[in-house]
């Protein structure tokens, strides 16, 4: 474990989310320690992605608060939350398929460097300098995720494994303090899964807090500092990987109760 300090970067307090009559999350409380890797697991439909969407501002919770670095963010729109330092990937890859690998990462730098419409239209020197900085930054990230030699390819043309890596790279480009990864290993083969795990560890080693939704238990058990288990929108277990592994309620939720 490499906690920078015993401080919570993210606090979820009494969050409730209902869609019509369906309760997707009911009264959820948990914290993420700064500098840690926290995994959220649970059967399909247990509310994991809903939780991610609330944290990253796709929609506000019905009730409850989300505090990031001590300030509540649950009312903010997605782009404002990105500005605050939370970045994410998507369960089904949401790359910009009409752009190159490089451009995808460059777009990730959007929060860091912003040019006005007029400045870009008149190609003011400042906007040119910014572009140069973004390009250098993007290339560094591509080297980090191992896709530097494919920078010119269209994002659509990459195999799924590399698309997933690229999504992580794009999320990193915004220099987040918290990165939310929605099933980074889904659909990957064993080698790719291994690469994704070590990448997540490397990201965490840079001091970035990782919040992870994942079904691949090997990945989860290997890299997480803490695990939260959801079932039907409720927390059924939370703690260290070895504790969660042996928790009876978790086994029940996944495998059912013996008759």
């Amino acid at each position: 474990m490499n906690f920078v300090e015993e401080e919570n970067i993210l606090e979820i307090n009494r969050v409730v989310m209902t869609f019509g009559g369906l309760m997707a999350l009911s009264n959820l409380n948990f914290q993420v320690k700064k500098g840690s890797i926290k995994a959220i697991i649970g059967p399909n439909g247990s509310g994991k992605t809903t939780l991610f969407n609330i944290i990253t501002g796709s929609f506000p919770p019905t009730k409850g608060t989300v505090r990031f670095k001590g300030r509540s963010i649950e009312h903010l729109k997605a782009h404002k939350i990105a500005d605050r330092g939370i970045s994410r990937t998507f369960q089904t890859v949401e790359l910009f398929g009409n752009m190159t690998v490089m451009e995808n990462v460059m777009l990730g730098c959007h929060t860091q460097v912003r040019t006005s419409f007029m400045a870009s239209g008149f190609v003011l020197p400042q906007s040119r300098r910014k572009e140069k900085r973004i390009r250098e930054n993007a290339l560094k990230i591509l080297k980090f995720i191992g896709l530097a030699d494919k920078f010119k390819d269209s994002a659509d043309s990459l195999p799924l494994g590399e698309q997933k890596l690229l999504e992580i790279g794009r999320a990193l480009a915004s220099e987040p303090e918290l990165i939310c990864l929605d099933e980074p290993a889904a659909g990957l083969n064993e080698t790719e899964t291994h690469m994704a795990s070590s990448l997540i560890k490397a990201i965490n080693a840079k001091g970035i807090t990782v919040l992870l939704v994942e079904h691949d238990m090997k990945v989860v058990m290997n890299i997480s500092d803490e695990i939260l288990v959801l079932n039907y929108g409720q927390k059924i277990a939370e703690g260290l990987p070895e504790d969660v592994r042996n928790s009876l309620s978790v086994i029940e939720a996944y495998l059912g109760v013996e008759a």
């Binding site: 796709s58 782009h79 990105a82 870009s120 572009e131």
Partner: peptide, 21 residues
């Protein structure tokens, strides 16, 4: 420019574009 990149990103995926700020 970066503005054009943001526009094309919106075209491809609005959720991803807004998640990127």
């Amino acid at each position: 420019s970066g503005t054009g990149r943001a526009l094309r990103a919106i075209h491809a995926s609005e959720p991803a574009a807004s998640a990127m700020g």
